[in-house]
Nucleic acid binder design. Structure first.
Lengths: 232, 232
DNA sequence: TAGTGTTACATTGTCGACAATCGATCGTCC
DNA sequence: GGACGATCGATTGTCGACAATGTAACACTA
């Protein structure tokens, strides 16, 4: 859910072991990257037969993959018509970022309530990492995504994490669609660090406000580059 | 799923037309009701082969159905092991209801921001309906569910509605698992009406607080009956 | 008896083929 | 010429069979 944890996989994290991960999920991962990297533009059709042929597999796992992506909100399937990469319009972006703020604010409250200090350590580490990426825009994006993902994870709220999966996927999608020119990485890292500072001293309201301000900046930045919404 | 709108279906709402709805979705609906009505207890295995045989269909649509339910957080699938009805423990219930409060509070803010008065009309109608169910517990549950669903819908926030699908499904699951003895329907209806009153005059904070109190009551009521968590 | 290797069974994963459905195109009729 | 209907191609929906995987019970060995 959405969404509950999709599957339970045990074992094998290290090395390049033989994967017992169902084909469908691996295909989904592959297609997801293609979409999120912008290789598959919004509106592009994803034909089961063609994909199966290209990937050298049967249609069954491809179908499963498309369903997973549909779940993630990355593609749209119409019965008997086909599946296409989902387009995002201005309203989608606004909705997405507001919801994101809502959930991150909730995560902050969870952390503060528990007074979990190790959580702050994790977040500080993310900030440090963010400060070191220099001018690499892609790396900054990744570091930023990692910070926000960590914020959700350390909240230690299983359902929140589940919901976050869907949201973060679409956030990545939005970010991929605008070649965001960013400010200095160290400035952004400092912004984030201030949020963690507030969390560390238990001021969840201030932390939330800082976070809202941060996300609002991002919204503005994104929407400015959103000249032509390619209409879903 | 979680989650973007699963599919777009056009046409045929009335009568018992021939359904062009894919079998898998119909099966999912059927199984969902079975789970939500408690016929299929948590932990019960859902074997693709057996279900296909019982329903007189092939395994393909059954697989699709199980995947949809997995998305809704109602079942759990482990690769090569099988699918079972998901069990809910005390923590799940608490997480669920907190998340629910979070989203409904957000919905309230959306409505107040837009100053949408027709929204309040819809909600008042739900309250009226709720007041008339008398001692029918099931009907009261349905009316309550309808109120909260309406609250989300009138917020007019597509992504919120999507996320709500997953949540509400699990809420129904929880409600189904405890034979909740409720207070007088008219009292509960009055509680809800007070929330709408606050929304109508734009006092979103008060509305949210009232709603939080309401949900907290529900949590308490549910958890009290949660003697033996059957452990996921 | 404790431990190990093996076998059998249940279940899901994957495959290729056929049927149902949809949209567009073309032809026909007024 | 315009509207209606049939046909066609493309795509997904469904099916039955086979392969891969994991669990558990069993026999075997030290």
């Amino acid at each position: 859910m959405t969404t509950a944890p999709r599957t339970h996989r045990r074992g094998v994290k290290h090395g390049g072991e033989i994967s017992n991960v169902p084909l469908g999920e691996r295909i989904a991962d592959q297609l997801r990257d293609l979409i999120l990297d912008g290789v598959l533009a919004p509106g592009a059709p994803l034909v089961e037969t063609s994909l199966a042929a290209e990937l050298g597999v049967s249609r069954a796992p491809v179908r499963q993959a498309l369903r997973i992506l549909g779940l993630d909100g990355l593609v749209e399937t119409v019965p008997y018509r086909g599946t296409t990469v989902r387009g995002l319009d201005r309203r989608d972006v606004e909705e997405l970022l507001r919801i994101r703020t809502l959930h991150e604010g909730f995560a902050i409250r969870c952390i503060v309530e528990r007074g979990d200090h190790s959580a702050c350590d994790v977040l500080y580490a993310c900030c440090d990492e963010m400060a070191t990426v220099g001018g690499d825009v892609a790396a900054l994006n990744r570091a930023d995504a990692r910070f926000h993902a960590s914020l959700i994870e350390v909240a230690d709220h299983a359902l929140l994490i589940t919901l976050w999966r869907t949201i973060s996927m679409q956030v990545r999608h939005v970010m991929a669609m605008c070649n965001r020119r960013v400010a200095d990485a160290r400035v952004i890292a400092a912004h984030h660090r201030r949020i963690v500072d507030a969390i560390a001293v238990g001021e969840d309201e201030r932390a939330t406000m800082l976070l809202e301000a941060h996300v609002r900046d991002v919204i503005e930045l994104v929407l400015r580059e959103w000249s032509e919404p390619d209409a879903a």
